[in-house]
């Protein structure tokens, strides 16, 4: 029970970073992001967590969005892309993440 709780907390805390990393390569639409997250059991999420998060990132100007309306019977898709502020933000998050990884590595080695 504790393990599950811990896992979900980690997932919640890193979801934002994961989505931004995903968008660093190319623009994606919301459902696509969800599907990619769900390929990893640790990151499995639903609309109710990912969509509000995307909206918040958009409101904070880290993401910009464009609608691609239904073509050839495809559902309308909202594509998200990183803005320049968003790119800077991901770099900062990456740095912090590396620091955390170093810290964990240090703990494992038992450095005094």
């Amino acid at each position: 029970m504790n393990l599950e709780k811990w896992k979900s907390q980690i997932a919640r805390g890193t979801l934002e970073y994961c989505i931004l990393l995903m968008l660093r390569k190319r623009a994606c639409y919301g459902y696509e992001i969800l599907q990619k997250l769900n390929q990893n059991p640790m990151l499995a999420s639903t609309e109710s967590t990912v969509y509000p998060l995307l909206r918040r990132l958009q409101n904070e100007a880290y993401l910009c969005a464009t609608w691609q309306d239904s073509a050839q019977g495809l559902p309308p898709r909202k594509y998200y892309a990183l803005t320049s502020t968003g790119q800077q933000y991901v770099e900062q998050l990456s740095q912090a993440w590396e620091m955390l990884q170093d810290a964990i590595a240090n703990m494992k080695e038992g450095i005094s």
């Binding site: 639409y29 919301g30 459902y31 969800l34 609309e47 969509y51 609608w67 559902p75 309308p76 898709r77 909202k78």
Partner: peptide, 10 residues
């Protein structure tokens, strides 16, 4: 509209 899109995708 976005949630509707998700339903259509599913």
């Amino acid at each position: 509209k976005e949630i509707h899109g998700s339903i259509l995708e599913m």
